[in-house]
Design a protein around this nucleic acid. Structure first.
Lengths: 110, 110
DNA sequence: TATCTTTATGTCCAATATGACATAAAGTGA
DNA sequence: TCACTTTATGTCATATTGGACATAAAGATA
């Protein structure tokens, strides 16, 4: 978000910030959420890259379409464990997963 | 393990391999376990680096000493979620966590 | 050795996550 | 528009995880 847009919104009474501010998360829980978001995005990206539907991925994982949808939405009911397993099942390497997580850190600086 | 030792063991009927072979894990589940082991090691390392006991860390996390012990042992009853939260609570950055995971990949090549 | 501290292991049950299912919503092409 | 595919959302029962507690085992210090 650029500076003028932010300023305009704030003038009009909008609280402009990230999920952490909105939800009043302490910083480390906020970071945890960001990690989950990053992994969720990774799952979606890899799945689409492979031209798979959520249903197809669900079948490969022995899960269900609805759970995949929740996973890609980083729903609070899905664990990082499931995301990790999914990423590995899709063929992501630990290095790729690491990259997803590493980006969380720098995102704040951007 | 060096080559001659391996050869000697195998001559004597020992199956020489890693945890994956021993437990008959498929490769991606094996990798998942390795990720957990790496994170577990990270927790222990950071905790000791800070001169904390498991009990002290447990208190900081609102958990219990036994759970910390299990976490550091990468017990199957502890999730990656708990490890991640713990690492972040100890002050690990996403970048550091990423590094732990990234190392899993290259370990195989070593 | 004995005592104290720390860590490991096993079990309980309340809290949470899971796959499954139904169904709504959104997207796609005729 | 309609039909079809894909994704999103809500709920449920079963399974798994969590903190807690007891206690064993291992370390440290005298």
């Amino acid at each position: 978000m650029n500076t003028t847009r932010r300023a305009r919104l704030e003038r009009n009474g909008w609280a402009v910030g990230d999920a952490a501010q909105f939800l009043n998360l302490d910083p480390q829980e906020a970071q945890f959420v960001e990690v989950k978001l990053a992994l969720a995005a990774g799952v979606r990206q890899l799945r689409e890259q492979r031209g798979m539907t959520q249903a197809a991925l669900a079948q490969q994982l022995g899960s269900s379409q609805s759970r995949i949808a929740k996973m890609e939405a980083a729903d609070q009911s899905v664990t990082v464990d499931l995301m990790m397993r999914s990423l590995l099942a899709i063929g992501a390497t630990p290095g790729q997963i690491a990259k997803l997580i590493k980006r969380v850190e720098t995102r704040r600086a951007a």
